[in-house]
Design a protein around this nucleic acid. Structure first.
Length: 426
DNA sequence: ATCCTTCAGTCGTCTTGAAG
DNA sequence: CTTCAAGACGACTGAAGGAT
Protein backbone atom coordinates (compact mmCIF):
# COMPACT_ATOMS: atom_id res chain seq x y z
CA UNK A 1 0.00 0.00 0.00
CA UNK A 2 1.43 3.38 -0.90
CA UNK A 3 2.36 5.68 1.97
CA UNK A 4 0.21 8.47 0.60
CA UNK A 5 -2.62 10.08 2.44
CA UNK A 6 -5.20 12.10 0.55
CA UNK A 7 -7.59 14.73 1.73
CA UNK A 8 -10.64 15.18 -0.42
CA UNK A 9 -11.48 18.56 -1.92
CA UNK A 10 -14.72 18.82 0.05
CA UNK A 11 -12.77 19.00 3.29
CA UNK A 12 -11.60 22.27 4.76
CA UNK A 13 -7.99 21.65 5.71
CA UNK A 14 -6.90 22.96 9.11
CA UNK A 15 -3.33 22.96 10.53
CA UNK A 16 -4.31 20.00 12.74
CA UNK A 17 -5.57 17.98 9.77
CA UNK A 18 -2.42 18.86 7.84
CA UNK A 19 -0.22 17.70 10.74
CA UNK A 20 -2.09 14.38 10.87
CA UNK A 21 -1.65 13.92 7.13
CA UNK A 22 2.10 14.51 7.48
CA UNK A 23 2.28 11.95 10.32
CA UNK A 24 0.30 9.47 8.25
CA UNK A 25 2.84 9.82 5.43
CA UNK A 26 5.77 9.18 7.75
CA UNK A 27 7.89 6.13 7.04
CA UNK A 28 9.27 6.09 10.57
CA UNK A 29 6.59 3.91 12.13
CA UNK A 30 7.52 2.26 15.44
CA UNK A 31 6.75 -1.45 15.59
CA UNK A 32 3.95 -1.28 18.14
CA UNK A 33 0.86 -3.42 18.02
CA UNK A 34 -2.77 -2.48 18.20
CA UNK A 35 -3.28 -3.36 21.88
CA UNK A 36 -0.37 -1.20 23.13
CA UNK A 37 -1.50 1.80 21.10
CA UNK A 38 -5.16 1.27 22.04
CA UNK A 39 -4.40 1.20 25.77
CA UNK A 40 -2.11 4.22 25.52
CA UNK A 41 -4.69 6.21 23.55
CA UNK A 42 -7.39 5.46 26.12
CA UNK A 43 -5.09 6.37 28.99
CA UNK A 44 -4.24 9.64 27.27
CA UNK A 45 -7.82 10.54 26.33
CA UNK A 46 -8.14 13.12 29.11
CA UNK A 47 -4.83 14.97 28.54
CA UNK A 48 -5.59 14.88 24.80
CA UNK A 49 -8.84 16.69 25.60
CA UNK A 50 -11.17 14.22 23.92
CA UNK A 51 -14.89 14.60 24.52
CA UNK A 52 -16.90 11.58 25.63
CA UNK A 53 -18.30 11.16 22.10
CA UNK A 54 -14.83 11.33 20.54
CA UNK A 55 -13.66 8.73 23.06
CA UNK A 56 -16.61 6.50 22.20
CA UNK A 57 -15.91 6.85 18.48
CA UNK A 58 -12.23 6.08 19.10
CA UNK A 59 -13.21 2.98 21.05
CA UNK A 60 -15.40 1.73 18.19
CA UNK A 61 -12.79 2.46 15.53
CA UNK A 62 -10.16 0.60 17.56
CA UNK A 63 -12.56 -2.30 17.95
CA UNK A 64 -13.12 -2.44 14.18
CA UNK A 65 -9.42 -2.25 13.34
CA UNK A 66 -7.73 -5.60 12.76
CA UNK A 67 -4.66 -6.36 14.87
CA UNK A 68 -2.79 -7.72 11.81
CA UNK A 69 -3.11 -4.29 10.13
CA UNK A 70 -0.85 -2.88 12.85
CA UNK A 71 2.14 -5.12 12.14
CA UNK A 72 5.39 -3.90 10.59
CA UNK A 73 4.99 -0.74 8.55
CA UNK A 74 1.37 -1.47 7.62
CA UNK A 75 -1.13 1.36 7.91
CA UNK A 76 -4.21 0.51 9.93
CA UNK A 77 -7.16 2.02 8.08
CA UNK A 78 -10.74 1.65 9.31
CA UNK A 79 -13.68 2.03 6.92
CA UNK A 80 -17.07 2.71 8.45
CA UNK A 81 -19.71 5.23 7.40
CA UNK A 82 -20.65 8.12 9.63
CA UNK A 83 -24.20 6.78 9.61
CA UNK A 84 -23.14 3.46 11.15
CA UNK A 85 -20.89 5.18 13.68
CA UNK A 86 -23.83 7.40 14.63
CA UNK A 87 -26.05 4.39 15.25
CA UNK A 88 -23.33 2.66 17.32
CA UNK A 89 -22.66 5.76 19.44
CA UNK A 90 -26.28 6.93 19.65
CA UNK A 91 -25.48 10.40 18.31
CA UNK A 92 -26.33 12.24 15.13
CA UNK A 93 -24.12 12.04 12.08
CA UNK A 94 -23.16 15.68 12.52
CA UNK A 95 -21.83 14.93 15.99
CA UNK A 96 -19.90 11.94 14.64
CA UNK A 97 -18.34 14.13 11.95
CA UNK A 98 -17.17 16.55 14.64
CA UNK A 99 -15.91 13.73 16.89
CA UNK A 100 -13.87 12.21 14.05
CA UNK A 101 -12.46 15.63 13.22
CA UNK A 102 -11.51 16.05 16.87
CA UNK A 103 -9.58 12.76 16.72
CA UNK A 104 -7.82 13.95 13.56
CA UNK A 105 -7.05 17.37 15.07
CA UNK A 106 -5.65 15.53 18.11
CA UNK A 107 -3.27 13.78 15.68
CA UNK A 108 -4.59 10.32 16.48
CA UNK A 109 -6.22 9.66 13.12
CA UNK A 110 -5.66 10.90 9.59
CA UNK A 111 -8.25 11.18 6.84
CA UNK A 112 -7.59 8.90 3.91
CA UNK A 113 -10.28 10.13 1.57
CA UNK A 114 -11.42 8.61 -1.70
CA UNK A 115 -12.48 11.02 -4.42
CA UNK A 116 -16.12 10.62 -3.39
CA UNK A 117 -15.50 10.54 0.34
CA UNK A 118 -16.73 6.96 0.57
CA UNK A 119 -14.79 4.71 2.89
CA UNK A 120 -13.84 1.15 2.01
CA UNK A 121 -10.98 -1.33 2.37
CA UNK A 122 -9.89 -3.84 -0.29
CA UNK A 123 -7.85 -6.86 0.78
CA UNK A 124 -6.03 -9.53 -1.23
CA UNK A 125 -6.40 -13.25 -0.67
CA UNK A 126 -3.82 -13.12 2.12
CA UNK A 127 -6.00 -10.60 3.94
CA UNK A 128 -3.53 -7.76 3.40
CA UNK A 129 -4.85 -4.29 2.62
CA UNK A 130 -4.38 -3.37 -1.05
CA UNK A 131 -6.54 -0.25 -1.27
CA UNK A 132 -8.00 1.55 1.74
CA UNK A 133 -10.02 4.71 2.13
CA UNK A 134 -11.25 5.74 5.54
CA UNK A 135 -9.62 6.68 8.82
CA UNK A 136 -5.94 5.94 9.29
CA UNK A 137 -4.45 5.19 12.73
CA UNK A 138 -0.87 5.73 11.50
CA UNK A 139 -0.49 9.11 13.32
CA UNK A 140 -1.23 7.35 16.62
CA UNK A 141 1.38 4.67 15.81
CA UNK A 142 4.00 7.27 14.85
CA UNK A 143 3.31 9.24 18.04
CA UNK A 144 3.07 6.19 20.31
CA UNK A 145 5.98 7.11 22.62
CA UNK A 146 4.91 10.74 22.82
CA UNK A 147 1.33 9.80 23.69
CA UNK A 148 2.53 7.29 26.25
CA UNK A 149 4.65 9.98 27.91
CA UNK A 150 1.65 12.27 27.95
CA UNK A 151 -0.46 9.57 29.61
CA UNK A 152 2.28 8.83 32.17
CA UNK A 153 2.67 12.52 33.01
CA UNK A 154 -1.07 12.90 33.42
CA UNK A 155 -1.15 9.81 35.66
CA UNK A 156 1.73 11.16 37.77
CA UNK A 157 -0.08 14.47 38.08
CA UNK A 158 -3.23 12.69 39.19
CA UNK A 159 -1.27 10.70 41.77
CA UNK A 160 0.43 13.85 43.10
CA UNK A 161 -2.95 15.55 43.41
CA UNK A 162 -4.35 12.57 45.31
CA UNK A 163 -1.32 12.46 47.59
CA UNK A 164 -1.67 16.19 48.31
CA UNK A 165 -5.34 15.68 49.26
CA UNK A 166 -4.33 12.92 51.67
CA UNK A 167 -1.59 15.13 53.14
CA UNK A 168 -4.02 18.02 53.64
CA UNK A 169 -6.51 15.73 55.40
CA UNK A 170 -4.03 13.94 57.65
CA UNK A 171 -1.82 16.93 58.54
CA UNK A 172 -4.77 19.19 59.33
CA UNK A 173 -6.23 16.46 61.52
CA UNK A 174 -2.89 16.09 63.30
CA UNK A 175 -2.70 19.83 63.92
CA UNK A 176 -6.17 19.79 65.50
CA UNK A 177 -5.21 16.76 67.59
CA UNK A 178 -2.06 18.37 68.94
CA UNK A 179 -3.70 21.72 69.71
CA UNK A 180 -6.69 20.00 71.39
CA UNK A 181 -4.46 17.89 73.60
CA UNK A 182 -2.00 20.60 74.50
CA UNK A 183 -2.04 22.19 77.96
CA UNK A 184 -1.02 25.53 76.44
CA UNK A 185 -4.11 26.02 74.27
CA UNK A 186 -4.04 29.80 74.25
CA UNK A 187 -0.64 29.97 72.59
CA UNK A 188 -1.46 27.29 70.04
CA UNK A 189 -4.85 28.62 68.94
CA UNK A 190 -2.97 30.79 66.48
CA UNK A 191 -1.95 27.60 64.67
CA UNK A 192 -5.61 26.67 64.20
CA UNK A 193 -6.33 30.11 62.72
CA UNK A 194 -3.40 29.80 60.36
CA UNK A 195 -4.51 26.31 59.39
CA UNK A 196 -8.03 27.55 58.63
CA UNK A 197 -6.59 30.40 56.57
CA UNK A 198 -4.55 27.93 54.52
CA UNK A 199 -7.53 25.60 54.02
CA UNK A 200 -9.75 28.47 52.90
CA UNK A 201 -7.15 30.14 50.69
CA UNK A 202 -7.20 30.04 46.89
CA UNK A 203 -3.97 28.05 46.77
CA UNK A 204 -3.84 24.80 44.84
CA UNK A 205 -4.21 21.60 46.83
CA UNK A 206 -0.46 20.95 46.48
CA UNK A 207 0.43 24.39 47.78
CA UNK A 208 -1.97 23.85 50.68
CA UNK A 209 -0.30 20.51 51.47
CA UNK A 210 3.14 22.15 51.54
CA UNK A 211 1.93 25.08 53.67
CA UNK A 212 0.18 22.77 56.13
CA UNK A 213 3.26 20.56 56.38
CA UNK A 214 5.37 23.64 57.25
CA UNK A 215 2.78 24.74 59.81
CA UNK A 216 2.74 21.25 61.29
CA UNK A 217 6.56 21.29 61.68
CA UNK A 218 6.39 24.66 63.43
CA UNK A 219 3.69 23.36 65.76
CA UNK A 220 5.70 20.28 66.67
CA UNK A 221 8.66 22.52 67.40
CA UNK A 222 6.53 24.81 69.61
CA UNK A 223 5.00 21.90 71.53
CA UNK A 224 8.37 20.22 72.03
CA UNK A 225 9.80 23.46 73.39
CA UNK A 226 6.80 24.03 75.67
CA UNK A 227 7.04 20.51 77.03
CA UNK A 228 10.76 20.88 77.65
CA UNK A 229 10.05 24.03 79.66
CA UNK A 230 7.27 22.26 81.59
CA UNK A 231 9.58 19.36 82.35
CA UNK A 232 12.16 21.77 83.64
CA UNK A 233 9.65 23.49 85.91
CA UNK A 234 8.38 20.09 87.11
CA UNK A 235 11.92 19.14 88.03
CA UNK A 236 12.26 22.37 89.99
CA UNK A 237 8.87 21.82 91.68
CA UNK A 238 9.78 18.27 92.68
CA UNK A 239 12.58 19.66 94.86
CA UNK A 240 9.77 21.09 97.03
CA UNK A 241 7.99 17.73 97.15
CA UNK A 242 5.02 18.88 95.06
CA UNK A 243 3.78 17.34 91.79
CA UNK A 244 2.41 19.43 88.92
CA UNK A 245 -0.64 17.54 87.78
CA UNK A 246 -1.30 19.86 84.85
CA UNK A 247 1.70 18.66 82.85
CA UNK A 248 0.72 16.18 80.18
CA UNK A 249 2.78 13.74 78.19
CA UNK A 250 4.40 14.81 74.97
CA UNK A 251 2.34 13.30 72.21
CA UNK A 252 3.86 11.30 69.48
CA UNK A 253 4.21 14.10 67.01
CA UNK A 254 6.88 12.60 64.86
CA UNK A 255 4.56 11.93 61.97
CA UNK A 256 1.11 12.84 60.78
CA UNK A 257 0.48 9.12 60.62
CA UNK A 258 0.60 8.99 64.36
CA UNK A 259 -2.93 10.29 64.64
CA UNK A 260 -5.83 7.94 64.65
CA UNK A 261 -8.79 8.52 62.37
CA UNK A 262 -11.21 8.43 65.30
CA UNK A 263 -10.04 11.87 66.33
CA UNK A 264 -12.19 14.79 65.23
CA UNK A 265 -11.36 15.93 61.74
CA UNK A 266 -10.12 19.38 61.01
CA UNK A 267 -12.63 19.46 58.16
CA UNK A 268 -15.23 17.51 60.03
CA UNK A 269 -18.07 19.05 58.07
CA UNK A 270 -16.69 17.51 54.89
CA UNK A 271 -17.54 14.06 56.14
CA UNK A 272 -20.92 12.56 55.61
CA UNK A 273 -21.87 10.07 58.30
CA UNK A 274 -22.48 7.26 55.86
CA UNK A 275 -22.17 3.74 57.06
CA UNK A 276 -21.89 1.78 53.85
CA UNK A 277 -18.85 0.15 52.36
CA UNK A 278 -18.21 3.11 50.16
CA UNK A 279 -17.67 5.34 53.11
CA UNK A 280 -15.54 2.70 54.77
CA UNK A 281 -13.32 2.72 51.76
CA UNK A 282 -13.00 6.51 51.98
CA UNK A 283 -11.51 6.35 55.44
CA UNK A 284 -9.41 3.32 54.68
CA UNK A 285 -6.11 5.23 54.45
CA UNK A 286 -6.52 6.40 57.99
CA UNK A 287 -7.43 2.89 59.12
CA UNK A 288 -4.27 1.72 57.48
CA UNK A 289 -2.20 4.39 59.20
CA UNK A 290 -3.66 3.60 62.58
CA UNK A 291 -3.07 -0.06 62.09
CA UNK A 292 0.47 0.50 60.89
CA UNK A 293 1.17 2.36 64.09
CA UNK A 294 -0.32 -0.54 65.99
CA UNK A 295 1.96 -2.97 64.16
CA UNK A 296 4.96 -0.76 64.77
CA UNK A 297 4.19 -0.72 68.48
CA UNK A 298 4.81 -4.46 68.53
CA UNK A 299 1.40 -5.13 69.97
CA UNK A 300 0.34 -7.36 67.12
CA UNK A 301 1.40 -10.94 67.06
CA UNK A 302 2.13 -13.35 64.27
CA UNK A 303 -1.57 -13.70 63.46
CA UNK A 304 -1.45 -10.26 61.89
CA UNK A 305 0.81 -11.28 59.03
CA UNK A 306 -2.08 -11.22 56.60
CA UNK A 307 -2.59 -7.51 56.95
CA UNK A 308 -3.61 -7.28 53.33
CA UNK A 309 -6.91 -9.09 53.80
CA UNK A 310 -8.26 -7.10 56.67
CA UNK A 311 -10.18 -4.51 54.70
CA UNK A 312 -11.94 -6.93 52.41
CA UNK A 313 -15.66 -6.78 53.04
CA UNK A 314 -17.73 -9.92 53.23
CA UNK A 315 -19.69 -11.19 50.20
CA UNK A 316 -18.14 -10.58 46.79
CA UNK A 317 -14.67 -10.34 48.26
CA UNK A 318 -14.81 -13.48 50.40
CA UNK A 319 -11.44 -15.26 50.29
CA UNK A 320 -9.91 -12.43 48.24
CA UNK A 321 -6.86 -10.62 49.50
CA UNK A 322 -5.29 -7.55 48.00
CA UNK A 323 -2.13 -9.60 47.44
CA UNK A 324 -4.13 -12.02 45.28
CA UNK A 325 -5.49 -9.07 43.28
CA UNK A 326 -1.99 -7.68 42.97
CA UNK A 327 -0.55 -10.91 41.60
CA UNK A 328 -3.55 -11.57 39.31
CA UNK A 329 -3.73 -8.12 37.74
CA UNK A 330 -0.14 -7.60 36.59
CA UNK A 331 -1.06 -6.25 33.15
CA UNK A 332 -3.32 -3.53 34.56
CA UNK A 333 -0.61 -2.39 36.95
CA UNK A 334 2.19 -2.36 34.38
CA UNK A 335 0.19 -0.91 31.48
CA UNK A 336 -1.52 1.80 33.52
CA UNK A 337 1.42 2.51 35.86
CA UNK A 338 -0.56 1.49 38.95
CA UNK A 339 0.12 -0.56 42.07
CA UNK A 340 -2.36 -2.62 44.09
CA UNK A 341 -0.48 -2.94 47.34
CA UNK A 342 -3.46 -1.93 49.47
CA UNK A 343 -7.21 -1.59 49.12
CA UNK A 344 -7.01 2.23 49.19
CA UNK A 345 -4.53 2.08 46.31
CA UNK A 346 -6.85 -0.18 44.36
CA UNK A 347 -9.80 2.15 44.98
CA UNK A 348 -7.71 5.15 43.94
CA UNK A 349 -6.76 3.36 40.72
CA UNK A 350 -10.41 2.75 39.80
CA UNK A 351 -10.76 6.07 37.96
CA UNK A 352 -7.86 5.26 35.64
CA UNK A 353 -9.14 1.73 34.98
CA UNK A 354 -12.67 3.04 34.43
CA UNK A 355 -11.45 5.50 31.80
CA UNK A 356 -9.18 2.83 30.37
CA UNK A 357 -12.04 0.47 29.56
CA UNK A 358 -14.45 3.24 28.61
CA UNK A 359 -16.86 2.66 31.49
CA UNK A 360 -19.14 5.56 32.31
CA UNK A 361 -18.74 7.33 35.62
CA UNK A 362 -22.42 6.76 36.43
CA UNK A 363 -22.16 3.00 35.87
CA UNK A 364 -19.18 2.77 38.19
CA UNK A 365 -20.82 4.93 40.85
CA UNK A 366 -23.92 2.72 40.67
CA UNK A 367 -21.72 -0.38 41.15
CA UNK A 368 -20.08 1.24 44.20
CA UNK A 369 -23.52 1.92 45.64
CA UNK A 370 -24.63 -1.67 45.12
CA UNK A 371 -21.49 -3.56 46.06
CA UNK A 372 -19.24 -1.15 47.93
CA UNK A 373 -16.16 0.55 46.55
CA UNK A 374 -13.77 -2.28 47.31
CA UNK A 375 -15.85 -4.93 45.57
CA UNK A 376 -16.56 -2.61 42.62
CA UNK A 377 -12.86 -1.76 42.28
CA UNK A 378 -11.89 -5.45 42.51
CA UNK A 379 -14.36 -6.39 39.76
CA UNK A 380 -13.17 -3.44 37.66
CA UNK A 381 -9.56 -4.61 38.05
CA UNK A 382 -10.46 -8.15 36.93
CA UNK A 383 -12.47 -6.89 33.93
CA UNK A 384 -9.68 -4.50 32.93
CA UNK A 385 -7.05 -7.23 33.29
CA UNK A 386 -9.09 -9.63 31.15
CA UNK A 387 -9.76 -7.01 28.49
CA UNK A 388 -6.04 -6.15 28.35
CA UNK A 389 -4.97 -9.77 28.07
CA UNK A 390 -7.56 -10.69 25.50
CA UNK A 391 -9.13 -7.62 23.87
CA UNK A 392 -10.60 -9.73 21.06
CA UNK A 393 -12.59 -11.81 23.57
CA UNK A 394 -14.08 -8.90 25.50
CA UNK A 395 -15.46 -6.51 22.92
CA UNK A 396 -17.34 -4.41 25.47
CA UNK A 397 -15.49 -4.27 28.82
CA UNK A 398 -18.10 -1.84 30.16
CA UNK A 399 -20.91 -4.28 29.43
CA UNK A 400 -18.88 -7.13 30.89
CA UNK A 401 -18.30 -5.07 34.06
CA UNK A 402 -22.03 -4.42 34.43
CA UNK A 403 -22.82 -8.11 33.92
CA UNK A 404 -20.24 -9.06 36.60
CA UNK A 405 -21.81 -6.54 39.00
CA UNK A 406 -25.26 -8.01 38.38
CA UNK A 407 -23.93 -11.47 39.16
CA UNK A 408 -22.12 -10.18 42.24
CA UNK A 409 -25.35 -8.57 43.45
CA UNK A 410 -27.05 -11.96 43.06
CA UNK A 411 -24.17 -13.62 44.90
CA UNK A 412 -23.28 -15.63 41.78
CA UNK A 413 -19.92 -14.05 40.92
CA UNK A 414 -16.94 -16.35 41.60
CA UNK A 415 -14.37 -13.53 41.62
CA UNK A 416 -11.85 -15.59 43.57
CA UNK A 417 -11.84 -18.27 40.86
CA UNK A 418 -11.20 -15.66 38.17
CA UNK A 419 -8.37 -14.19 40.20
CA UNK A 420 -6.70 -17.55 40.83
CA UNK A 421 -6.99 -18.26 37.12
CA UNK A 422 -5.46 -14.91 36.16
CA UNK A 423 -2.69 -15.29 38.76
CA UNK A 424 -1.87 -18.79 37.50
CA UNK A 425 -1.73 -17.77 33.85
CA UNK A 426 0.23 -14.54 34.33
C1' DA B 1 -33.95 29.98 46.43
C1' DT B 2 -34.38 31.98 42.09
C1' DC B 3 -33.00 34.14 38.03
C1' DC B 4 -29.65 35.18 34.54
C1' DT B 5 -25.55 34.46 31.75
C1' DT B 6 -22.06 31.75 29.66
C1' DC B 7 -20.32 27.79 27.46
C1' DA B 8 -19.68 23.17 25.56
C1' DG B 9 -21.93 19.77 23.25
C1' DT B 10 -25.39 18.52 20.24
C1' DC B 11 -28.89 18.56 16.53
C1' DG B 12 -31.35 19.94 12.20
C1' DT B 13 -31.39 22.15 7.83
C1' DC B 14 -29.45 23.76 3.73
C1' DT B 15 -25.83 23.51 0.61
C1' DT B 16 -21.76 21.79 -2.22
C1' DG B 17 -19.15 18.28 -4.73
C1' DA B 18 -18.03 14.02 -7.17
C1' DA B 19 -19.16 9.56 -8.96
C1' DG B 20 -22.36 6.08 -10.54
C1' DC C 1 -31.27 11.58 -9.56
C1' DT C 2 -29.07 9.27 -5.75
C1' DT C 3 -25.52 8.48 -2.46
C1' DC C 4 -22.06 9.81 0.79
C1' DA C 5 -19.16 13.15 3.13
C1' DA C 6 -18.76 17.56 5.05
C1' DG C 7 -19.10 23.00 5.82
C1' DA C 8 -21.98 26.82 7.58
C1' DC C 9 -25.34 28.47 10.51
C1' DG C 10 -28.93 28.85 13.92
C1' DA C 11 -31.06 26.83 17.82
C1' DC C 12 -31.62 23.82 21.86
C1' DT C 13 -30.03 21.74 26.33
C1' DG C 14 -27.89 21.15 30.64
C1' DA C 15 -24.25 22.35 33.81
C1' DA C 16 -21.77 25.84 36.24
C1' DG C 17 -21.21 30.16 38.31
C1' DG C 18 -22.58 34.74 39.70
C1' DA C 19 -26.03 38.22 41.11
C1' DT C 20 -30.13 39.35 43.59
Amino acid sequence: MPAVSNVSSFRKVTPGILASQRLAMSNDIPDVGKSEVAITLKRASQPLGLTSTAYHVLDILLGLSKAEDWQGDARPVVAISNEKLASYVGRSERTIVRAVRQLVEARILAYRDSSTGRRWVHRNNAGEITHAYGLDFTPARVRYREIRKLADAWQADLNAEREAKRTVASVSRSIVDIVDASPIDAELDDFLDRMTAILESNETIREKAASLQDLYDLLVEAVTEANAQSAQSTKNDQTTGERDSSVTQLYNTSSPDSCSSIRPSANADEFDPKTNDAYGAEIAPEKEQAERAWVNSGARGAENHDETTRNAPVGTLDAISISLLESACKSVQSDFGLTFKSWPELISAAEVMRIGIGLSSSAYTAACGRLGREAAAAILAVVTEKSLRDPEKISSPGGYFRACCDRAADGKLALARSLFGLAASS
